[in-house]
Every structure is written in C-alpha cells, then in structure tokens.
C-alpha cells in the first residue's frame, strides 16, 4: 500500500498549473484533496509520474455570491462548504449533501472541485450540480470555457476535461427563494458511497409543483438528470400516483452495477424510493 514514485510540483498560479499539466502530458495528474487519487495510487491502480498539487493556488479557494449565482473555487473543501453561511443561506442542499460525504477527516481535505471533476459515479456532488444547473469553469492551454454540469460527464472517470485543462471554479444559480430541496442518500455506513441517492430542487405554487429538477447519484456510469421524472411532477400536487410514476420514470434510466451494496434490482428499487422521498421532503420544505 505504497504509491509508486512521482515528481511533485506545486505551482502558485492557475497559469503555471496549466503550463505544467500540458507540458507533462498524460503522465501528470492534478492533486486536489487527494482522497480519491492517493488511495488509488497506494493500490497502484494509478501511477502518475507527476503530481501537480493545486493547494498552492490561492485563486482556487473561496465562496462568493455574484448576483443570483454563487461561485465556488475548485479547491474549496467540503468542510469549508459546511462552515459557510453563504452556502447555508443560498444553497442549503449543498450543505446537506456535503455533510453526507465520507467522514469529517475526509471533508477537511476533500474539495468540491475534485469531487465534481474526477468523474467518479459514486461521488455525490456531480448529480447535485446537474440538479442545480451549475456550470464549471475549465481553464487550459487554449483559454477558459464554461461547461454546464449536465454536459460534463461522459462515462465513468471520463469527462469533458481536455488534456492540460483543470476545473477552476463552479458557478451555481441560486434557487428561487422558498424553494424546497432534499438529498436522499442510502448508504451502508458512514464513509460509503451511495447505494443510490437522489437530489431534488423544486418550487411550488398554489399547492402544485411549479418547477423541479431531479439528479441521481451512483445508479449509472455517470450522474443522471431524471428529466422525465421531473417533467411528470410539474403541475401536480405530488399525489401518490404521480410520485409512483416519477419514481418509475427515474428507475427507467438507472443502470447501476451489482456490487457489495446489492444487486442491480435492489439498487434501482431503492433509487426509486430515494426519488420519492426526496420529492416528498423537498415539497414539505417549500415556503
């Protein structure tokens, strides 16, 4: 359980990091919190020749409110998200979700950028970012670009990141005042990835759902937006029949792998239940 040898780089600016990553090529990996990458390196399932540590780049830190959006630097840790009044106020679902990630020690190191960028289908933040309509700022040798979260994930550990690019910040539109939200995560124990999880953000008007987004974690090789399920609930009062239809629509797009968390059928089944529960709890939170 010892990583292979590598060279260590600690650039002080995004530009330097990009320069390093593009010149070192495939054998270089950016190091954020490291709590996905370092265990893989210890198992020698990853053996990069170069690690580019992003901790020295002050510009990658911080949480800012810009009008109707919240911008979060990629190297902001889960612990910092949890400590942020701005997040608690504007994006309470992000607070709720961060608290369900791993354990306290991991949350001190684990970053939101690492969580969304490495493409691990077990991570919680990607589906949440899709649900919130977040976009990622990617900076690389050819400049900067914005990619919406829903177009970022291409497969397990495959993302829209081009060689030499790093994800530098996340921009999240603040949901409407009075919105309801819930992240329902079924896991075996603290520290586990979700057996299945569902994120819901919705608004209600006159007792009916006015808008709704539903994201799904760890039930497919990428995080999913359950758009059909969300469409089905809009305009309803979330009556039992609608909830059932929505859950079925969400289950229909799930394709989890069988693992120690359970067989495929179970993971899909509880995925549907997470959707139902998240919808119900979110609706109850609307004001």
């Amino acid at each position: 359980m010892i990583p292979g040898s590598f060279s260590y780089h600690r650039p002080a600016s995004v530009a330097d990091a990009i320069k390093l990553l593009s010149s070192l090529g495939d054998e270089a990996r950016p190091l954020a919190g490291g709590h996905s990458l370092i265990p893989m390196m210890k198992l020698r399932l990853a053996s990069p020749d170069h690690l580019v540590d992003l901790h020295g780049i002050a510009a990658l830190k911080g949480i800012h409110r810009d009008g109707d959006r919240v911008s979060i630097g990629a190297m902001t840790t889960q612990h910092e998200l949890l400590a942020s009044d701005e997040i608690a106020r504007s994006l309470p679902i992000l607070h709720e979700t961060a608290l369900l990630i791993a354990d306290p020690q991991v949350r001190y190191m684990g970053t939101i950028g690492g969580n969304v960028a490495n493409g691990d289908p077990g991570n919680d933040m990607p589906a949440l970012m899709m649900t919130l309509g977040a976009s990622y700022r990617l900076e690389g040798p050819n400049g900067a670009r914005e990619v919406v979260a829903s177009e970022f994930y291409q497969g397990a550990y495959f993302t829209a990141l081009e060689p030499g690019e790093i994800l530098t910040s996340i921009s999240i539109p603040v949901p409407a005042a009075g919105h309801g939200y819930a992240y329902e995560k079924l896991k075996r124990k603290i520290g586990d990835y979700a057996t299945a999880a569902a994120a819901v953000v919705l608004t209600m008007s006159g007792g009916k759902v006015a808008s709704c987004a539903i994201g799904l974690t760890n039930v497919h090789e990428t995080p999913l937006l359950a758009t059909e399920a969300a469409r089905l609930v809009v305009g309803t009062s979330l009556d039992p029949a609608t909830l059932k239809q929505a859950a079925a629509a969400a289950v229909a797009i799930m394709a989890p792998a069988a693992d120690a968390r359970g067989p495929v059928e179970y993971r899909k089944h509880v995925g549907g239940i997470m959707v139902t529960r998240a919808l119900t709890r979110a609706a109850a939170l609307t004001k």
């Binding site: 075996r188 124990k189 603290i190 520290g191 586990d192 693992d259 120690a260």
Partner: peptide
C-alpha cells in the same frame, strides 16, 4: 474497510 462492514459510532 469500504466493503467489509466495520461500523462507526454512528451505526
């Protein structure tokens, strides 16, 4: 310890 159930103080 990811898959071998080792309960924490929470469970």
């Amino acid at each position: 310890f990811m898959d071998f159930f080792m309960p924490t103080a929470v469970e």
